[in-house]
Every structure is written in C-alpha cells, then in structure tokens.
Design a protein around this nucleic acid. Structure first.
Length: 517
RNA sequence: GGCGGUGUAGCUCAGUGGUUAGAGCACACGGCUCAUACCCGUGGAGUCGCAGGUUCGAAUCCUGCCACCGCUACCA
C-alpha cells in the first residue's frame, strides 16, 4: 500500500460552459461525472484537482448582455454565479472555478499569444468568411439554412479582412502519431477512430484566431496587435492550463499538469483532438493523457432545445427528487459514452426500483430489526457460516468489479455491480430470516452474527456509493453510528470486512428515499 | 456524396465465433412478514433490422440492402 504522498496526482476537467445559456442537464452531465471521478480518486488518497468553469468572451455574449441592458462583465458575473450556485446545489466538489475573464487567465492568454507569434506559429493573412450583418459576426457554412442565416433570414455577405492565423496545418502528422500511439488517448475507441480517420483523410487548415476589434470587442487583445481580439480557441482552451496556475502559480501547475482526463461532449471532440494539442505542441507544453467523450441527452426522444421548451433544469430536479437521486439516475441509467434518452418517467422508475425499494428499504428493514431484536445495539459477530462467507465474498467482488468499470468510466456498469451487492444483502436477509431466529432463544448468537453481517454489508455499501451519492453515504454512515469520520475512510482499506464496531447504538432515521406514488 | 455509429425480450441495455442468447425494469404466479404494499423465488416471453456468404459452428466475421442518428471544422 502506497503512502498518501506517494500516490499519483489526478487532474480532471469539464468543458468550460459558454455563458450564453444558464446551466442545464447537458452541462450538468459532465460536471456530475467529473465530480464522481474526483471523489473516487480522493477516496484512494490521491491528490485530486477538479476544474470546471465558464467561457465568457465573444460577440454573442456581448450581444446577449446588451439585449438585457447590461455590460458584458456584469452579465457574465451573473451567469457565472448561476453556474456556481447550480453546481453547489448538485454537490459538485470542484477545486476551482475558472472564468476566462479572470485576470490571471487573460494575462496568460496574452503571454501565450505573444509566444506563438514570436515562435512564428501565428501569421497575418486574409480571412474570408460569410458575415451576417444581423448577427454581427461570421457564421459557419454548416449553420446556414438554404444559404441564409437561420436567425435573420438573410443571405450573409462574403467579407474579407486581415486576421491572424495559427499554423494548425503543420501539426497534422504529429497529432496523428501521438493519437495513434495513444500518447494522447481518445475514448471510447470509436471516437478515437473518428479522429484518426479524419486526420488521415483531410488536410488540416490553418485556423483564424483573431477578429478585428470592430467586430469582436468583448475579447482578449492580441499583445502584438491591439486592434484585434483573440477568437475563441486560444482563449477557451488555455483554461485547462491557467485553471491550475499556469504562469501564475508554477508549483501548482507543475504538480497537476498534464490533465489525466478531459471530459468533453462529442460536439467538441474534433477541436479538442486537433486545435488543443496543436496549441500545446506549439507552446512546448505536455499533452493531456486522455480525452473522454460522453454522449448527449434527448428528452422524451427529442433533442433538448430552447425552442422546444424541453430544456431540463438539473437544480429543479435535484430539489424535487434529491441531489443523490439525480446523480444516481444521470450516471446509472445511461452508458457514459453513449447518447441517452432522458424522461421523468424513467427517473421515477429507477428511483422507486433502485433507491426506494432496494437501498432505502434495505437500510430501513435492517435497522428496524436491530432495534426490535437487539435494542438498537450493533451485536458482535460470531461463527461464520457458509452463507455469511458468501455475502462477504460478494462484497469483495462488488468492489473489484465496480472499480474496474469505474476506471473505464463505465459508471452505469459500476453502479450495477454495487446494486448487485445491495440485492445480495436483501437476499441474504431473506434466506437467514432473522425474524425466525428471533423467536428461538437458542439462536441468539446466530441472530447476532446474521445482523452483524448484514450491517457490515450496509457499511460497505455506504462506502461504495460515496462518490456517486455523497449525502446518502453520509446519512447511512450516521445511521450506523460509526465513530470514525467518513471523510477519513480510504479505499481499499476501509472496505475490509469486519471493521464495523459492535456495542454501539444505531440511529434509524427517516426513509432515505420515500417512494414516489 | 464521404466517413462513422446504432438496430438483441414490452422498456433500457449487456453480450465480437462455440453448450438450450443474458441483466434490470415491467408483467404473472408463489413465498415471507423485518421493512418505504417492501423483499426473495419461479415463469412467460426474443425469426439477435433484412438477404446472402465464410465456417464444423455467427447476434458475434464478410458483402449487399433497409431504418434511424452523428460528423463533414474555424458558433460553444
């Protein structure tokens, strides 16, 4: 067993969310996943850094701010605050919340731009694009509808202006090598294939990274040409570096970089697999180890969108069903790397079946029996019979298998393993039938043993679910009246069988998950 | 058009060559009575999208077709 200070560090990120939209289910998804990952690694005593934040520059933000009569900064402050509050409500344990308008970030971005410029990775060139006067920005061909801007129903004009370009094209071979050698891992593997086939089949074009200030005022100035602001890429991607102190806290940066995993949505895979590593190569910074691509949600079979009015508010759901129920459902009901269809009906089904019936009722029935048969006092364990041993083995297997799934980010699988164990305890109780033992005085010791065994199983459950459901974990821990602080429990040691102390009075509480009618 | 993905029980999904294809939920029946009308057991149920092919043997490999979806970059 390694000592804590010898454990490897772990750095996990979410995308930074564009402030044009308040938090919703789509942004909560990778955030909850990252939180679970962070909590899991902390359980092993690892030094974890978990970063999330907001992306705040750009013409769209400036426009949105103006439309509600606010300054861009003020507007961003408010939305960033909404994100922070939302993540607080979802029990997100991020170590830092980065905003691209943070002064440390802006300074670092300028420094990076200058360095790219000095290193001749950036040059001035003509940019030709379709400009929509209504949007006051260039719009990509892909978003045109019959050649017109979908928002303003107007054909955009073809404009040419001088911009600064990043020499993305020169990194093509290097990217191909790094990704195919898996120095930069992209998972699930289908996503890696997508990227590789793209890199093999198409030529990377150099990338425009600035706009004239007249077009995008709300942005970071180029240090070598103050009439331009940098456009999206350099600004946004560098958050992964500046969020852990790059150029302002060298010690911290050295400690945590490279990122162990960037969680991203499939919509931003391509840019993360091309622009981002190229920028790092140009800056001479090590590449992240892994990019993991999660799926998207539809809602009742439909795409989630503002115009359909089916945007799901995770904070509302957490309020209605409980944070842990939401976290359990989001990660338990959908394979993380695939798309999934969200519905309240499914949420309520899983809630009743898994949380209320399996887990909640288990705690309830078990603690009730301890109260009824042993005055609430945790009994001593006794002679172990085969059936007891089997439950113990089931616990060991549940952890080993869940751990394996976990390290592949197969959260729904990991939870399924844990739930197999929970069902195993229910089954154990049925088979040993403590209510029958209680009727016979000569079975006194056997009843002690049986209750102890089941309680010990419940203690293990409390630990196993901890990264996914921190509040429930804590509540179970309290109901079992365990003296040691939950926060000090470390995997895998705390999972050893038999650590539950006898002689202590349990505190049965209200049902953990009241059934939904 | 190109590249890629998906299509397995009513639902959500496992299952990448080998005994009668699996899980959870839902449904039916039985058991129990400690518990949140809960838990435990048993069961029905599937031409594994369609058609060919390779093989002693295919949901699993190959070809074609059908349906749905994603990407085809410089809006995140």
């Amino acid at each position: 067993m390694q000592k804590e200070d010898e454990m490897p560090k772990f750095y996990v990120t979410t995308p930074i969310y564009y402030v044009n939209q308040p938090p919703h289910l789509g942004t909560a998804y990778p955030t909850i996943a990252a939180d679970v990952i962070a909590r899991y690694h902390r359980l092993f005593g690892q030094d974890v850094f978990f970063l999330t934040g907001t992306d705040e520059h750009g013409a769209k933000v400036a426009q949105s701010a103006e439309s509600v009569g606010k300054s861009p900064k003020q507007f961003c402050d408010e939305i960033a605050d909404q994100f922070k509050k939302a993540w607080g409500a979802l029990n997100i344990s991020n170590d830092h919340f980065i905003r691209t308008t943070d002064s440390e970030h802006e300074r670092a971005v300028k420094w990076a731009l200058q360095r790219l410029y000095d290193g001749e990775y950036v040059y001035r060139h003509k940019y030709e694009g379709l400009y929509c006067v209504g949007c006051e920005q260039y719009i990509p061909k892909s978003s045109l509808v019959q050649g017109k801007c979908p928002l303003h129903r107007k054909e955009p004009e073809l404009l040419t202006e001088e911009c600064y370009f990043f020499k993305l094209s020169q990194f093509q071979d290097e990217l191909l090598t790094r990704i195919s050698k898996r120095e930069l891992k992209i998972e699930p593997v289908q996503r890696e294939n997508e990227v590789l086939s793209f890199l093999r089949g198409e030529k990377l074009q150099d990338l425009a990274i600035s706009r004239s200030k007249s077009k995008v005022r709300w942005g970071i100035e180029l240090p070598f040409d103050r009439s331009h602001t940098t456009y999206v890429w350099v600004d946004a991607f560098l958050n992964y570096l500046t969020g852990i102190g790059w150029l302002w806290d060298g010690e911290k940066f050295e400690r945590y970089w490279p990122a162990d995993v960037h969680l991203i949505g499939k919509d931003i895979l391509r840019v993360h697999a091309t622009i981002w590593p190229s920028l790092l190569l140009a800056l001479g910074v090590e590449l992240p180890r892994k990019i993991f691509v999660h799926g998207f949600f539809t809602v009742n079979g439909q795409k989630m969108s503002k115009s359909l009015g089916n945007v799901i508010d995770p904070v509302f759901l957490a309020g209605k069903y409980g944070v842990d129920a939401l976290r359990y459902f989001i990660l338990g009901a959908f394979p993380f790397g695939q798309d999934g269809d969200f519905s309240l009906q499914r949420l309520e089904h899983r809630y009743n079946a898994d949380l209320a019936n399996d887990l909640g009722n288990l705690a309830s029935r078990l603690l009730a029996m301890v109260e009824k048969y042993r005055g609430g006092i945790i009994p001593t364990s006794g002679k172990e019979m085969e059936i007891d041993l089997n439950l113990r083995r089931l616990a060991e297997r549940a952890f080993l298998e869940a751990d394996k799934c976990f390290r592949e980010f197969a959260f729904s699988e990991a939870l399924a393993r844990i739930w197999e164990f929970i069902r195993g305890i229910n089954k154990y109780i049925d088979e040993v039938a403590p209510w029958s033992l209680a009727k016979k005085e000569e079975q006194r010791e056997r009843l002690d043993m049986v209750l102890y065994t089941a309680l010990e199983g419940l203690r293990i459950v409390a630990l196993l679910i901890r990264p996914f459901m921190p509040s429930t974990s804590k509540e179970l821990w309290n109901q079992l009246s365990i003296e040691e602080k939950l926060e000090t429990q470390r995997f895998p040691r705390a999972l050893e069988w038999g650590l539950l102390k006898p002689g202590i009075e349990v505190k049965r509480g209200k049902p953990l998950f009241p059934r939904i009618k």
